[in-house]
Amino acid sequence: MTDLLNRPGDGASDDAEGLAVEPITQWDLFIARLRRHRLAMISSIFLFVVIIISFVVGPLLKCDKGATECEFPQLWDHTQGLKDDDDRLLVNIAPRGSIPFGTDELGRDVLTRVVRGGQASLTVGIVTGLLVASLGTVVGALAGYYPGVVDQALMRFTDLILGLPLLPVAIVVGRLLPELTFLPDWMQSGPWGIAFLLGFLLWGSLARIVRAEFLSLREKEFVEAARAAGASDRRIIFRHILPNAMSPIIVQTTLIIGAAIIIEAALSFLGFGVRPPTPTWGGMAASGAGVAVRGFWWELVFSASALVMTVLAVNFIGDGLRDALDPTQTIERK
């Protein structure tokens, strides 16, 4: 005869079912989920501070007096080197009290240039990210939703873009940009031109991801259900498919923002990015690397740290957004 024994486990009864529930909007849930993602929250605050400093504080802080009379925290002119009383450039001065980040090989204050460089790097990152997100999503969505000729044509074009060797093309076009006189001034020099260039070179991967998402989502039963209800293509795309494809779009976009900042840095490093004397983190890292071998480490370390921390923060925020946009992530109802 079989000997069987069942023992109970303990636990409280589950009676949540059927109780009236306060309406919680999607936005509340989104914020609540984002709040739980501590790394993303810290990163958001960090990035916010970086943006404020780069775009608002940096340009405001300026010293009109003679170079030697200006004291920290009033920042120096980012184009002019510091001079001593004998009018000699203070070249490669190590960090100290009134010059916390030191000076570079032309005697310019590194702190000033890191703050100003953020403006260029972040402009490139954000503008490229927005361009990539819109181009990639539109192309990917059209290709994924309308199979056949539309899909084929768009995807072959995408393949072409993806096939372009990024750095050589960027170098050539980056170099040609100042020569293209038909372009407006803001496109020819500075971060905007680089941002547009990178935007047009980097959307291919996102388009492919979005297309794959659309291809699989359009076969989902909830999309079929919407079609059975008589919903239009527009409604299906914007109400049913796109919201469910947001996670990969956001994650990929944040990756692109990070990548764009780094590629801009690489271009500046190679001398094909934003024109001097406008500082960028990449350009500073390049010149900093040159003097670092002689022991003047500060320009390289401070510019590279700013670059790495900002890119990391962007990626963490992407992570947090993805989780926050996922409705299946549970939030305790109170």
Binding site: L5, N6, P8, A12, D14
Partner: peptide
């Protein structure tokens, strides 16, 4: 199963549930 009912685990669905079913887990 994260929060199972007290007593017999079938008691919320049982047609013949009595007081004892809420109090103790029945052995086979």
């Amino acid at each position: 199963l994260i929060n199972p009912p007290l007593g017999c685990r079938f008691n919320p669905r049982c047609d013949f549930v009595q007081d004892i079913c809420h109090d103790s887990y029945p052995a086979l």
